[in-house]
Design a protein around this nucleic acid. Structure first.
Lengths: 405, 405
DNA sequence: GGGATTTTGTTCGATCACAAAACTATTGTA
DNA sequence: TACAATAGTTTTGTGATCGAACAAAATCCC
């Protein structure tokens, strides 16, 4: 039950009914393919005639296509329908502190090409490099005509409407308009989103399981701790685009110093830096202070490797992270009551070591039995969730519910 | 941008466009009355002919009515339109630990009658008493035909779909089907919701300011600490109806014992009991353990009165609550990035004493400048937010956006 | 082998609702 | 009094669902 915003609404036109039903058909095909017209009519409780005419539009438009005829126990055989995703392409860009990744993929998220280069921190130079590389990738793969957009994922706060990066401490950017610059360069629509929210989009649109209702939180444990919140199938962006910052929920006012200035933030317990600092027995140090590299070369992957090879102190450091992870997740689960929580980031490489500990922490903090039982699902490593999210940025608008009322 | 849930969608029918536009018209009248047909046509960028026909339907239906003609600089004078709220009535019921309130009000939330009685904890007896009293109130005010429903507000977790109270520690109820029992008794539709969510609904539908987008959190500080979350004009209920439980977000693992079993929960610092216990210098004691009254008769109102009359220890106790309130609100603001936060509960009676302290705590914890500047708005005392929420439960479905796609 | 049956997909007329423009009503101004 | 401006209604046209009829294609049954 939504209240209509009388300052920003969309009234229904003559074609609104068709737009709605067309999107529903498209999504039904997407999730149930192969599927026949008659099947769609049954699922939608609508006449087959209407389905015929909608399907015809979608075929002309090129979003779905007819495949082989299926089999029926009796009667005429159905012609099966499929969503066209293989030759609809998108460029996904993931700008990270160390490297920038560019992937060419289709609308289903299948990787076609992938390259990376050392991140250039000057926005103008970075855009130049990006435009050049994107053009080359498209040309190499004969995809110049078939690419429908570029998805840009950035660490930091983003305003997707204006396309500006409002603030990215990692890149030392403030109010940088990178989207329009790239769009001008490549001549394609460009979409931009911050990293955790993009991961959440990837999970929603390209994730394995079809989640009824799509109520979940995607938590990324990396240099920082961020999250993307999806409620009722909608990404929650907040009033000024900064929702999901659970990283600085306080766990202990006397806890370790956090880079944000406060003490005992969740991030100060669970970020990769926090885990490493705990292992080294020292305080957290800012990752980047005027482009200076972090003072230790020990990575979280190294630490996990040490833990696996029997380093007790490494095991203890990682287990402690697991415990605080669980406690923090408890807070999230109590606050938002999602149907599940996804966890991404390098720490998932040690999931078998910490899963029980995470669940124990969650149990301690969860208020209801339902909340305590919330599935915590680690993202499989090497799946490039940010890049998949960038692809989803391009693909999702073609499948989302039309805005109405 | 919402993903369509293919397991639970609503396709468009022949009349969907009209339903959408009718609701938009209704809401435009509601927020801009008095308003003319021509004015509506301009605001909606639609032909006046369509408005004429929609308005005719709404007048026949009885939701709006024509008032006096307005004034125009030149040309024919417009006939002004109004939403009919004065003689559309609702019964609002607020079941609390100590007393149960019944209010008869119109759809605008204006109080017509109000009574209360000592809460009966046995569900069957309570329903009996409620049905009897509701019938009597309706008869007394000649409202038997004009009342369109009953709104029931309950402390604890509720499933509004099945109408069951899943768990209410305060009332010691577990899986009690009170809604259908009351509905059978009074012969009217009955809606049920938990207290903080109902307060949020009251703010959204009957609040003072028209908030663009309606992104806010309503925090109630009472015996417990709960909240109702409204994002994009939608109440967030969560996967199993328990969203908004910020009360048990941990502030300090070594903090005071909370009634939930954990230590250092936000609630253990800011609930009325917590403030009183802090003043008395003792541990928190369960409010209700087999219907036993709390061991002290000192109320939070008494404490505020003592603070005002110069009791330094009372001032300190309340100020400490204010500080923790601010810290907790910082977490909420970071997590959800609402455009504003409303605070309800008895503590708002001391708002002038703690406002600065609350803001200071918020500033310490807020990550972004925008988040730190989030307005914190105390609910004015004596406004019966829960009862207004109960009224909103009945009225809102008539004004909400139609469910589509 | 051939008709009956069943299922799929298309077509067509009826109805609902927006779109656009003509038309009527009413008011103020030159 | 004629004219312009504004409000509200009516009419005609078009897009879309609704429902039923119809053709196409496969299996079942005799």
């Amino acid at each position: 039950m939504r209240k209509i915003d009388t300052r920003d609404f969309r009234r229904a036109t003559r074609t609104t009914s068709r737009e709605i039903n067309r999107r529903i058909v498209l999504n039904l095909v997407r999730e149930h393919q192969p599927v026949s017209r008659a099947d769609l009519a049954r699922r939608m409780e609508i006449g087959r005639g209407v389905v015929t005419s909608i399907i015809q539009e979608l075929i002309v438009e090129g979003t779905i296509y007819e495949g082989a005829t299926g089999h029926a126990a009796r009667g005429r055989r159905p012609t099966m329908l499929y969503v066209r995703t293989q030759d609809r392409l998108a460029i996904a860009v993931d700008i990270r502190f160390s490297r920038t990744f560019i992937m060419l993929s289709d609308f289903a998220g299948t990787q076609i090409a992938l390259e990376s280069f050392e991140t250039i921190f000057d926005p103008t130079e970075l855009v130049e490099e990006l435009v050049e590389r994107i053009a080359r990738i498209l040309a190499t793969h004969g995809a110049t005509g078939r690419c429908e957009g570029v998805g840009l994922v950035v660490p930091g706060m983003v305003d997707p409407d204006s396309g500006r990066v409002l603030n990215s401490p990692q890149l030392a950017w403030r109010d940088v308009d990178i989207r329009d610059a790239v769009a001008d360069g490549v001549g394609l629509p460009v979409y931009i989103e911050n990293a955790p929210m993009a991961c959440a989009l990837a999970q929603m649109w390209l994730g394995q399981r079809g989640n009824s209702g799509d109520n979940f939180v995607y938590v990324t444990i990396s240099d920082g701790v961020g999250s993307g919140i999806v409620l009722n199938g909608q990404l929650i962006r907040g009033y000024s685009n900064s929702a999901g910052e659970f990283g600085h929920v306080p766990l202990d006012p006397n806890g370790p110093q956090c880079l944000c200035g406060a003490r005992g933030c969740w991030e100060a317990y669970t970020s990769n830096q926090a885990t490493i600092s705990r292992y080294l027995g020292r305080e957290l140090v800012p990752l980047r202070e005027g482009a200076v590299h972090p003072p230790t070369t020990l990575t979280i992957e190294d630490l996990i490797a040490r833990a696996r090879s029997g380093d007790d102190r490494a095991v203890a450091a990682i287990e402690a992270t697991g415990r605080y992870l669980g406690i923090g997740l408890g807070g999230i689960v109590n606050a938002l009551n999602p149907s599940q929580v996804f966890v991404g980031g390098e720490i998932t490489g040690a999931w078998d070591l910490i899963e029980q500990i995470v669940r124990k922490g969650l149990h301690e903090r969860a208020l209801t039995r339902a909340a305590a039982a919330t599935p915590i699902i680690p993202e499989q490593l090497g799946g490039y969730p940010r890049l998949r999210g960038a692809t989803a940025l391009v693909a999702a608008p073609h499948f989302a519910a039309p805005r109405v009322a």
